[in-house]
Simulated assay, not measured.
Amino acid sequence: MARPVEQVKRASNQLHAADNKPGDISDAALVEMYRQMVLVRQFDRRCVALQRAGRIGTYPPCEGQEACQVGVANALRRQDFLFPTYRDSGAVMLHGVPMERLMLYWNGRPEGAVVPDDVNVFPMAVPIATQLPHAMGAAWAAKLRGVDQVALGFFGDGASSEGDFHVAMNFAGVFHVPAVFFCQNNQYAISVPLSRQTASETIAQKAEAYGFEGVRVDGCDVIAVYRAVQAAVEKAAQGGGPTLIEALTYRYGAHTTSDDPTKYRTAQETDAWREQDPIPRLQGQLRAWGLWDDEQENACLTEADALVSSAITAMEAAPPTPPEKLFEHIYKEPTAKLIRQRDELLVMLERRKQSEVEQSAAARGEGGKQ
């Protein structure tokens, strides 16, 4: 069986950039997808740097998976629902969540998890595969209500081993719901390689057991991803039922900023996947088609940097979160125990504040005597 990277190379070689400009995608859309991939990568790299500097918490990099993020976001309609994992900041942002809101999320702010009312994005799921039954449920609800809405759930190759994956697939197949299940097969579930995740030749073929279509695409090709998701969304919206899409991709960085990928994979493997980098790949195609040049590239990089910098500034200018926020949203109505704990915390904080004021005053007095 061919290695995934070899399968991706064969798929990419089928597209000769100068001769195969897509007739079904406008020039403006192709250029915009490239700009978006550059923006997602800039956002991602800056988040890694922010974490290293202690300005945000643990962060899961998505560098290498931009074609999946951008291809999906462009294929979804505004009314469609997106159910992300923790690694899908790019798709979440492109489907309508403000970038500064995402920055607040990774900064550990509760307001960062609040999605605007007019944006159909579910909060990011950190537990593995739990978002898939949610996506399936939203799709089923849309079908019961007769609403033209498709639900797309992201997941990784590791999630295909979770019970929630099988529950969602089975229910979606039985009830023929308008859902798309999009697997970003980046070859590793933290340190566990795909070969230890499943004995199936592909993840896409698992859909057959549940009675619906499975599709495998080159996840380093934004055009291929866009087409596959667009077709699946159209089919679901027209009553054709769910689709499982497996996109072969790779995360160039660590699983999260607390991980060391050199412990479980080689530099040679990473370098081989770097050859399929979705950003220079599309840039080369755009240049061959006469749609891109150095001036546009420089302007694109400058704009992306400015947008991310602005979001970082907004994040760091946000006022501190009140400590009592810890006790909100645990239950619809707070229990007596929670109320008591909240009140105890507030008393403790007030005493600490008073002590700091007294110590500061004492220090100033000592300084005056000197």
Rank of each mutant, 00 (worst) to 15 (best):
S161M: 01
F81S: 05
M124K: 10
A179V: 10
A362H: 13
A304L: 08
V150S: 04
R35E: 12
D305Y: 06
D27L: 02
L286I: 02
A91F: 13
G241R: 11
L291C: 15
D305F: 07
F181V: 12
G284N: 13
F155E: 02
W273M: 09
Y86G: 00
R55T: 05
M99V: 08
L194W: 12
Y210D: 01
H255Y: 11
T130C: 01
D117K: 07
R78M: 02
E162R: 15
D218P: 02
V40C: 12
L286S: 02
P178L: 05
V177P: 06
M1I: 13
E66S: 07
L338A: 05
A237E: 02
D221E: 06
F155P: 02
M136A: 15
N20E: 15
G90N: 13
A232W: 03
S258L: 04
G240Y: 09
D218G: 01
V347T: 14
A236D: 02
E208R: 13
M93R: 03
V357T: 13
R364Q: 11
D80A: 11
N170I: 12
E303C: 04
A18H: 13
D157L: 03
A209W: 07
N298E: 12
Q42R: 09
W106Q: 00
H255G: 03
A228P: 07
N74K: 12
M124L: 09
G158D: 10
Y226C: 09
P84W: 04
A272E: 14
P261N: 04
Q65W: 03
A237Q: 08
L282G: 09
V347P: 01
L132P: 00
A11R: 14
A18N: 02
K263E: 12
L291V: 05
L248E: 05
T321G: 04
A138F: 15
V308G: 07
D118M: 06
D44R: 09
G57S: 03
Q51T: 10
K143H: 13
A224G: 13
P261G: 04
C300G: 12
V192Y: 02
M1E: 11
F81N: 08
K21V: 02
E297L: 09
R10E: 15
K325L: 05
E246R: 07
A363V: 01
P60N: 02
N107T: 05
A267S: 08
T85Y: 04
C183H: 07
E295F: 04
L39D: 03
V217T: 06
V229R: 01
E63R: 01
P278G: 13
Y34E: 12
F182I: 01
Q42G: 00
R52M: 11
A304H: 08
V177I: 14
